[in-house]
């Protein structure tokens, strides 16, 4: 009787719950925290702007709205390139195509950061610094925070590219790095609207 009982027990061992993608779940939660971080920055900016006398303050340079709009398109193109790299990676034997598109995404991202850097040097030359006004402080804080995230995301993409080239990048790890870059791409239009167009 006991042996039959154990076989029944073995047969009724409860099924495991279906697994979710660990790396992706972790990255999504992290991105949620990052969204709250930028929400904090945007809130501070909105409040500071609301009680400032004149925004931008007189004597401070205006931000390059059109050039940055074009640069935004570069960043969006980078996101699209990465999305297509993800689609290529999901197909059988899509590694080489995924690698090419990933490289394109990294290059477009790097161009975005470089152009932002050039803009900064010009603005600094025009006298907009971190300490020149609240306007300058917030500009460098918010855009700088985004640039730091872009650089971090580009280095994770480069890491993923190296692993992909070697052929030992897992699908989950690739998805997680892509999620982080989508966040960097997706939050930028919001920041652009708030900081440049307001």
């Amino acid at each position: 009787m006991s042996s039959s009982a154990t076989t029944i027990v073995a047969a009724t061992r409860p099924p495991s719950a279906p697994r979710i993608r660990t790396a992706v779940a972790g990255m999504l939660i992290f991105v949620g925290t990052e969204i709250m971080f930028f929400a904090g920055l945007v809130s501070a900016f909105v409040i500071a702007r609301s009680h400032a006398r004149g925004w931008p303050p007189p004597g401070q340079p205006r931000l390059p709205v059109v050039a940055t709009a074009l640069n935004t398109l570069v960043l969006l193109a980078s996101g699209a390139a990465l999305a297509s790299a993800g689609r290529a990676a999901a197909t059988v034997f899509g590694r080489r195509r995924a690698l090419r598109r990933l490289t394109g995404a990294v290059l477009l991202g790097a161009i975005f950061v470089a152009v932002q850097g050039l803009e900064w040097t010009r603005l600094l030359a025009f006298g907009l610094t971190m300490r020149s006004s609240q306007y300058g402080s917030f500009f460098y804080l918010i855009v700088g925070a985004h640039a730091a995230h872009a650089l971090a995301a580009i280095s994770t993409l480069l890491w993923a590219r190296q692993r992909l080239a070697r052929g030992d990048l897992t699908a989950d790890a690739f998805t997680a790095t892509r999620v982080f870059w989508y966040f960097v791409v997706g939050v930028w239009p919001v920041l652009y609207t708030v900081v440049y167009l307001a």
Binding site: A23, R95, A171, D172
Partner: peptide, 18 residues
């Protein structure tokens, strides 16, 4: 609802990209 062969559906996240 995943099929028995996760490789085909791209379900197994641990697989490396080939």
């Amino acid at each position: 609802s995943g099929p028995a062969e996760p490789e085909v559906a791209g379900l197994s996240g641990d697989r490396t990209i080939r």
